[in-house]
């Protein structure tokens, strides 16, 4: 009888602690809520800016781009009259698209100093299995309720880091500059295909081997907010 009571007590304790922990996880962090509220002011935007591609094996000049966003998570980057290069799958994982799904749980992960700013670190774990990302870490300024950095791991396209700077549109939680960092894979085409026999550029080869990290930098000059965007843009 005594053994039975002890077992019952143990089981009850386990279930209580399990439900309590699940309940804690399921709660949205108030800071995330604050950030979400700020972002909720923006239903859609068209942002104009310049894009810089810095990948070791790519020589590309600055290009003018237009970024289209529509709630909850539609995002498109278009280069005006030219070919654009974007990190595979990563560019759509901006803070708006991450938080607008509302399908995540939050885990507080302490505070850190990021570029001289005290920021709160919060991890997001998606609750919807169909979402592309597995985990995302957010570095948030608790005073301004602005996300300064995210690090996201995706299911199929590797990991991305997005660093943000804010300016004129900080009130709406929109960045003035976004830097996407991602890992690059090797690039090599056989000489038989490129017909470049005997004229290899050793400097380019050396450089390509040295730097395996790529960045795409978008500096926004103007946002047009909540003016409506047709769905066929995306």
């Amino acid at each position: 009888m005594k053994k039975y009571i002890i077992n019952l007590f143990g089981c009850s304790l386990f279930f209580i602690s399990f439900f309590v922990s699940v309940n804690v996880l399921a709660q949205t962090d108030p800071l995330i809520e604050k950030v979400s509220q700020k972002l909720a002011q923006v239903n859609d935007y068209v942002a104009e800016g310049t894009m810089k591609t810095d990948v070791s094996f790519i020589k590309a000049s600055l290009g003018k781009v237009k970024v289209y966003f529509k709630k909850p998570n539609l995002l498109k980057v278009k280069k005006e009259g030219g070919i654009s290069l974007l990190p595979r799958g990563g560019v759509s994982l901006t803070i708006n698209t991450l938080l607008n799904t509302k399908q995540y749980t939050t885990i507080p992960s302490g505070t850190q100093v990021l570029n001289g700013k005290n920021v709160t670190v919060i991890k997001l774990i998606p609750t919807d299995d169909n979402l592309d990302w597995v985990i995302s870490t957010l570095w948030i300024d608790p005073v301004e309720a602005l996300v300064y950095k995210t690090a996201t791991t995706t299911k199929e396209n590797g990991s991305y880091e997005i660093t943000m700077q804010y300016g004129e549109y900080a009130q709406q939680g929109l960045a003035s500059k976004i830097i996407f960092s991602f890992n690059t894979k090797d690039y090599k085409l056989p000489n038989g295909i490129t017909l470049e026999f005997g004229d290899e550029d050793p400097a380019a080869k050396k450089k390509a081997l040295k730097n395996k990290k790529g960045t795409i930098e978008i500096t926004y000059s103007k946002y047009t907010i909540n003016k409506g965007i047709p769905n066929n843009i995306f």
Binding site: K59, I83, Y187, K188, P190, T194, K205
Partner: peptide
């Protein structure tokens, strides 16, 4: 016409049109 996206053996050159 569009930008010239040139794939060389060890690197890629993107030249504006």
């Amino acid at each position: 016409t569009d930008d010239l996206f040139l794939m060389k053996s060890n690197y890629v050159v993107l030249i504006e049109q």
